[in-house]
Design a protein around this nucleic acid. Structure first.
Lengths: 325, 325
DNA sequence: GCAACGAACAAAACCGGTTTTGCTCGAATC
DNA sequence: GATTCGAGCAAAACCGGTTTTGTTCGTTGC
């Protein structure tokens, strides 16, 4: 099947191809009758613009990029990506995905040189992240999920942690712990600070934060080996929360009686175990969409304000309850 | 930062831009000394080809597409995608992702018209899938994951189910059940047939297959309400298996004593619960890579043979054991 | 009645590559 | 010594759009 070009339309309508271009783009300089004739022919031929040709002359790639560092199939990421897509998809802006465990910087370089993308979304921002500097240097428009020197959209860690810790406080917990992802992540750092703040505000007896890297189950085991043992555990991700439930089951610790488990993100996974996981729900799809919207603004030439996304809300299920001493 | 073009190189090296193109692409017709000079200048200027310009003249998009129907964040999908990427990423072929719950066909049409992609990968093939017909009609190169009229790579359902059922048979199970995804999926249909075959071959007393749609937990509950109750349950996905463990816990059914649970795919999720899930391991990353490799052949002009990927292997963990009557 | 103007369109340049064609010149052939 | 021939390169066409520049012609103003 041969795809029609504006040249074909021009020939068929008996006009110059520049006229066709003007007519199709609603530019002035074409009489109404000619415009209608051209649109008719274009429709008849089933013409659609070649994104490549348009990109070349407009110097716009018509795509945005996302580089993923981890090969670990984080379910949460997929929902973020779906959120990105909900903004760009309908606008016919492609979403280019690349996995690059250790070569993220090279990918950005490559994309920029090849003019493959108009902008990028950056997830899992680290403290003093080299990507931020590079993107600024290249002048490649970017929006980060998590605060950075670039335009960003971030989660409301304070409210999230106040919600989580407040819930546990109301249930009567006095010794709480939290397990998060790598401490190098801005997300983790912010949530750790917010967790400790909230714990102080609620006058917790103890509040400790540990990292799930490299082995989340081992980290949970160590936490639960402490004496006195924390009676509640806030897990940054739902996967960690599932893991915590597993460790508790293995150690014969009853949930929620002897240990309350709270997931810092909600997803269908939280419904699977018994008891189901109480979670702080963040709408990752909307979060992703908000980031995409911000990038869209940036690409349109505005300087979008940094946004905080939220607030999260608590979804109470069976994995949290009053501590039994 | 201005990006250098071959025109810049040509001016600097004092040659025509066609000569630069030949030199950079290793074409004959350029003397060795000129070629070296041009490569030197290109290197000095930090030149990289514009993918857009190259696409326009070569009539190749330099990208392949993937349309996802489901917004449900299936962790398995991410690993497949990572597998695709492991083939295309290093070759600087972009992976374009689009979520299109009900407009998949429109996306293919649009991509084809816009010349956005050179080919597509199709996941979750359904019986009599309209996408297959459309792709054939458009002549858009495609590889399906799961058998179809198009070039495909599929899983070895027979071996997988023989492995799973054989394991259960050796443990002494006589009444087994299986829960799978939508029966419309080719993947499900093939695994159902293979499961029933294997059950017959092992002279099972009973072997029933149900679908997890729309509510997997409810389906498991119904299965476990049957009398006599099946003593083992094969779950097509690891998420379903987690759900089955949850339901069993809720009903007070001990795993693996009263019910063995086996996951049809392995992932880190299988390690989370206690007992951890015995699984039939399929390397989804390699499976995705095999599909991508097949598409690459197709794009290179070969007609690749349909491949079966496998065989899977059994990873024994705690969720399966001899039935206690 | 003639210059000035603007509407409507054609023609051409451009984006940054690839590919075809054409030209020049030195070496080999007869 | 005139004729091929081919190596090495320049020039131009091309991909399919967008954008700038030119051209024609009817209308308006003085």
């Amino acid at each position: 099947m041969r795809r029609p070009t504006i040249h074909d339309i021009a020939r068929r309508a008996g006009v110059a191809k520049s006229t066709v271009s003007f007519a199709l783009n609603g530019q002035p300089g074409v009489s109404e009758s000619t415009r209608r004739r051209i649109l008719g022919v274009a429709d008849e031929l089933g013409w659609r613009p070649s994104s490549v040709a348009r990109s070349l002359s407009s110097a716009q790639a018509g795509a945005v990029g996302l580089v993923l560092a981890c090969e670990t199939a984080d379910p949460a990421l997929m929902r973020l990506v779906a959120g990105f897509e909900s903004v760009f998809g309908p606008r016919e802006v492609g979403l280019l995905l690349q996995f690059a465990p250790r070569t993220e910087l090279a990918v950005y370089h490559s994309w920029w040189h090849q003019r493959r993308v108009d902008g990028v979304l950056v997830v899992d921002v680290r403290v003093s992240d080299p990507r931020i500097a590079l993107l600024g240097e290249l002048g490649l428009p970017a929006v980060t999920l998590g605060r950075s020197a670039l335009p960003s959209v971030s989660l409301d860690a304070e409210t999230a942690m106040r919600t989580a810790v407040g819930h546990l406080a109301r249930l009567g917990h006095r010794r709480i712990a939290r397990i998060g992802r790598s401490p190098e992540l801005v997300h983790t750092a912010e949530h750790t600070a917010a967790f400790l703040d909230a714990a102080r505000a609620m006058a917790m007896e103890s509040a400790v934060c540990v990292t799930a890297e490299p082995d989340a189950a081992e980290a949970v085991r160590r936490l639960l080996a402490a004496r006195p043992r924390p009676t509640a555990l806030v897990c940054d991700t739902d996967v960690m929360a599932l893991g915590a439930l597993g460790v508790a089951a293995q150690l014969g610790i009853r949930v929620p009686g002897e240990l309350s488990v709270l997931a810092g993100e909600d997803s269908p996974l939280c419904l699977l175990p018994h008891p189901a996981l109480t979670a702080v729900r963040v709408d990752l799809h909307s979060y992703g969409a908000a980031a995409a919207e911000t990038l869209r603004c940036l690409l349109a030439g505005d300087r979008p304000p940094d946004r905080t996304f939220g607030p999260p809300c608590l979804v109470e299920r069976g994995s949290t309850g009053p501590p039994v001493s």
